[in-house]
Design a protein around this nucleic acid. Structure first.
Lengths: 200, 200
DNA sequence: ACATAAACATACTAACTGGTATTTTTTTTA
DNA sequence: TAAAAAAAATACCAGTTAGTATGTTTATGT
């Protein structure tokens, strides 16, 4: 039982270090050696817990990357309150709350989508799953807004959800190229204008 | 003079093959060996024309990637006609005209932004330059629309331009995860709704 | 036609890659 | 407490990486 715990702790250590390195340097250029040097464990330890780099990648996506999006962008949508206001706050606040590091390094999910999104079907599915969760939560919120009469009834929830997600992920990438927040401020201004028209 | 031409032809050959391989497999995982195997020339030939992979990467960005965006998204904005209509057509038609291959592989620029956009300042600058050109062209078109009275005068051109670019690049990435055009159709629907509100 | 230089080829290096085989250490169980 | 099993370490492998050193071939200018 103590062994089981130890194993779990080691796996978590590997996953956490792997996520950080993938985020900082990309997936392909982060080697198992580099990850294990960070954990101060050996390569043998890695291949005892994981059968391949691919398996690790999938765990990092489904545990770390997904959790980040769920906590930052999905759960806040499910809180009670005015749907329109929640929509506005979540997108704007999240963007403003990012650290400089996170702004410079973009969205971990979006980085992976664009780096390995068309390499392996398994990665594709894992990443798509996150997008679908996000989309579903947005659609639910928008539908809620229609019922409570804070959002216009004639707009397409799915289209709006998809457009919101696209623009958010897009700006997260583009911001990486800049060293100021100007593009983010412009994005927020464009977003606000977009949101306003769906306000009832 | 014949030599100069030969040199230019070889460089173009290398750049073209490099672009295709970067687009298909990503920048980091495409080696000089793979590129030169495609050209049926040798590694010696490569290092005679380029001093490093980085130098090649920068040429691919400034020649091939930039040209693609200029031809597909920027030049069409400068044609005469109703500004609002041009905006709508360029974004929607471009997206619909992509081949299956291009949909599956995303936007070459966006792929690079997310793969190497925070690695090297040189890459950052080259990619940012393309975004800035695109943004400028969009701002000009929107301003033109305001003058000719096809676009509302109270909207921010810069914010709108940035929001349009963000969402376009975002959906190009997300589409890589899917095997149907559903997300693209939703995006177009969301975009149309966004555009409608700026119509005078 | 001959020296010069450009274009390209061949052979190599040292570091790094994902992964394996084997051994040692630690924990569990009977 | 001894055998079994899990956790981790060590040493290795074959293939790949960007880049270099040193050639050979081809064009150019005199």
């Amino acid at each position: 039982m103590q062994q089981e715990l130890k194993s779990e702790i080691t796996k978590q250590l590997i996953i956490n270090k792997a996520f950080s390195l993938f985020y900082e340097h990309g997936f392909k250029t982060t080697s198992i050696d580099k990850i294990m040097k960070e954990t101060t464990l050996s390569k043998g330890a890695f291949y005892h817990h994981y059968k391949s780099k691919k398996e690790l990648g999938l765990e990092v996506i489904s545990l770390k990357v997904e959790k980040r999006v769920v906590n930052g962008m999905i759960l806040p949508l499910k809180e009670s309150g005015n749907a329109y206001q929640i929509l506005q706050e979540v997108f704007v606040n999240r963007l403003k709350d990012f650290s400089i590091y996170d702004k410079q390094h973009g969205c971990p999910m979006n980085n992976l989508i664009n780096e390995i999104g068309n390499n392996e079907v398994a990665y594709q599915k894992a990443l798509k799953n996150i997008i679908e969760q996000w989309k579903t939560a947005l659609v639910q919120l928008i539908e809620r807004g229609k019922v409570e009469n804070s959002i216009k009834k004639d707009i397409s929830s799915k289209a709006t959800a998809m457009y919101l997600i696209s623009s958010f992920e897009g700006i997260r990438g583009i911001r990486k190229l800049y060293d100021t927040d100007v593009v983010i401020e412009e994005y927020i201004s464009g977003l606000s204008f977009y949101l306003q028209q769906m306000k009832v």
